[in-house]
Simulated assay, not measured.
Amino acid sequence: MENKTALVTGSSRGIGREIALKLAKKGYNIVINYARSKSAAQETAEEIESFGVKTLVVKANVGKPEKITELFTAVEDTFGRLDVFVNNAASGVLRPALELEESHWDWTMNINSKALLFCAQEAAGLMEKNGGGNIVSLSSLGARRYLKNYTAVGVSKAAVEALTRYLAVELAEKGIIVNAVSGGAVDTEALTHFPNREELLREAKERTPAGRMVEMEDLANGVMFLLSEEASMIRGQTLTIDGGISLLT
């Protein structure tokens, strides 16, 4: 049987890279999607190939439906199948609600929310040919609670979680399982863009009941669990991995 194939958007760095590496260790061929740094994507590909699997590196801004079509066409042309789609790529403008402009809103919603809808449509077409598959999205606590400067991103992640529920029901008949993972603050490159980064890190370190911050591997482990056979009856859920900080008022 051919190796199964996984596409992880935004997988040249950060959490997406961690997920891609874990999938490669399980024997999946990996499609690495990136938007900016080709060198980072190539470095990730080289590390993944050390596990004896194949990679495909594709530059595509998933906020644009035409680029999504090109991405999935490349997947089909190269591997002929898709078994796992991890909707990880994210971006956004970090400003208070009253300072947001239309371009900020559109940019954030397109990459974080619209991308899931149109990627899921493409993924479903490929997965159905092989009897099904799994879709997992990355969300954050800002989808359900207030985070400073997080208005546009928080709303976009709330849309991801809602869409996860709808997709889980509508794609079930095709053998496709859909879920999401929501994380607390993780010290990634993306966090450097937060104007209140130090405040977020300090609060996470001091208040997380588990005694430490959430790390990238924690979220990647959550994704891998949702992709496992043991989680096959979990549908349309958002698994929160935050060390318990969201339990505090």
Rank of each mutant, 00 (worst) to 15 (best):
F194V: 03
N130D: 13
A120I: 00
T192K: 14
I48L: 12
V160S: 06
V57F: 09
H104F: 13
L163N: 06
G133F: 09
G125K: 15
V86S: 00
A41Y: 05
L116P: 01
A204C: 08
G154C: 03
N87V: 01
G142Y: 07
L7E: 06
I234P: 01
D242M: 10
E161C: 06
D218E: 11
I30C: 00
W105K: 08
G14C: 05
Y34E: 07
L227W: 05
G243S: 09
T44A: 10
G63I: 02
L94M: 13
D187L: 06
E199Y: 09
L248A: 02
P195H: 11
A20H: 01
K157W: 14
E170N: 08
L167V: 01
A231H: 12
K157F: 12
N29G: 01
R36Q: 14
R144V: 11
A180W: 03
L141I: 07
E49H: 05
L21C: 06
E70S: 12
N29Y: 11
G211E: 08
M109L: 14
S139G: 07
A90T: 00
V169T: 10
E66F: 12
A185S: 11
E173S: 11
D218P: 01
Q237D: 13
N179R: 01
R212L: 11
T44S: 09
P209C: 04
E230P: 02
S232K: 14
M127E: 09
N221H: 14
R17G: 03
E66I: 04
E76D: 15
R81C: 09
N110D: 15
Y146D: 00
D218R: 07
K64M: 11
F79S: 02
E101C: 02
L141P: 03
E203I: 12
R207K: 15
L201S: 05
